[in-house]
């Protein structure tokens, strides 16, 4: 965190990098109250767990983020309608909407294969001629492992949220892709012998690639492969940080090696006690 913090917005973003991810939404709401003049920039720069809503027209679930939002309405990728209705809202061009429909189908297959559940949504928008941008979203939730019979003390739900924002720029038979991926992951476990253990956080990675294109549909395969590789890489890194590095830090705070020494000493004392048949003090 060696970033220069000089302006209020820098400070607000720095705070979000320090405050517990377990409470990201509550803290973001509080920061918006604290600095209303920077609220818009702050909210658009901070990723929060995705919200699932039901499409009024099709009944299918979809995910909400800043990219399908206009005013206070969210656009459904299924119906292409805003909820609450917003006929004057921002819509992709006819050509891009067609691609968006295909992309939603393709990434829905990907979602089923990797997440075996959850919800996915893809939103595209026009930028410059020969260019467009998009976001691919996945969310999966599950109940955390708990051995408490009292469910009132249940910690938050386990969840994976991935947000892949990309820009595509066509250059003849090639296209340049810039991908920024964020994964938010929350995992917890609780029980009488372990208390509560909660791990939560987010990780962001970027990648840029030039790939050949045959037709507009090729963009789906190209971004699909990039996102697939990125998620695999990030899944491994998250596993390493959450369950490896964090455990190692706990080991730095309290030495287990001392335990063994202690146990040896205790065993020796027991042995002596047994041998001499009297209590050692």
């Amino acid at each position: 965190m060696s970033l220069e913090v000089e302006t209020p917005i820098d400070a607000l973003l720095d705070l979000m990098r320090r405050l517990p991810p377990q409470h990201v939404q509550q803290n973001l709401d509080k920061l918006v109250q604290l600095a209303p003049e920077d609220a818009e920039e702050l909210v658009s720069s901070v990723d929060v767990p995705l919200r699932i809503v039901k499409c009024k027209e099709t009944g299918k679930p979809y995910l909400c983020c800043d990219y399908n939002k206009d005013g206070n309405s969210y656009r459904s990728p299924h119906s292409n309608e805003y909820d609450p209705p917003l006929p004057e809202g921002a819509f992709p061009s006819v050509k891009l909407r067609k691609l968006e429909v295909s992309a939603n189908e393709a990434f829905d297959t990907y979602r089923e294969m990797y997440f075996e559940g959850g919800v996915s949504s893809v939103y595209l928008w026009d930028t410059d001629p020969g260019a467009f941008a998009g976001v691919v979203l996945f969310k999966k939730r599950a109940c955390p492992q708990s051995h408490f019979s009292d469910l009132l003390d249940q910690p938050s739900t386990d969840s994976w949220d991935s947000i892949h924002v990309f820009e595509a720029l066509e250059k003849g038979r090639m296209a340049n892709y810039k991908l920024t991926s964020t994964v938010m992951l929350t995992i917890s476990v609780s029980g009488p012998s372990e208390g509560t253990v909660s791990l939560s956080g987010s990780m962001t990675r970027q990648q840029e690639q030039d790939l050949p294109i045959a037709s507009i549909q090729t963009h789906i395969a190209n971004t699909g492969r990039m996102i697939e590789d990125m998620e695999l890489k990030m899944r491994n890194q998250l596993q390493d940080v959450y369950f490896g590095k964090t455990r190692d830090v706990v080991g730095e705070l309290r030495s287990v090696v001392g335990d063994e020494e202690e146990r040896r000493r205790r065993d020796l004392a027991k042995e002596l006690q047994g041998r001499f048949g009297k209590r050692l003090t």
């Binding site: 492992q145 476990v189 395969a221």
Partner: peptide, 30 residues
């Protein structure tokens, strides 16, 4: 608990690879 979360909750959220153990064939998907 770290092992339990890795092998339980985490694995249950997202697979490393699909059941078929191969990546997706994006050209075929549509």
């Amino acid at each position: 608990s770290f092992e339990k979360m890795r092998d339980g909750g985490f694995r249950g959220l997202r697979r490393v690879l699909p059941v078929t153990r191969g990546k997706m064939d994006w050209d075929k998907v549509l």
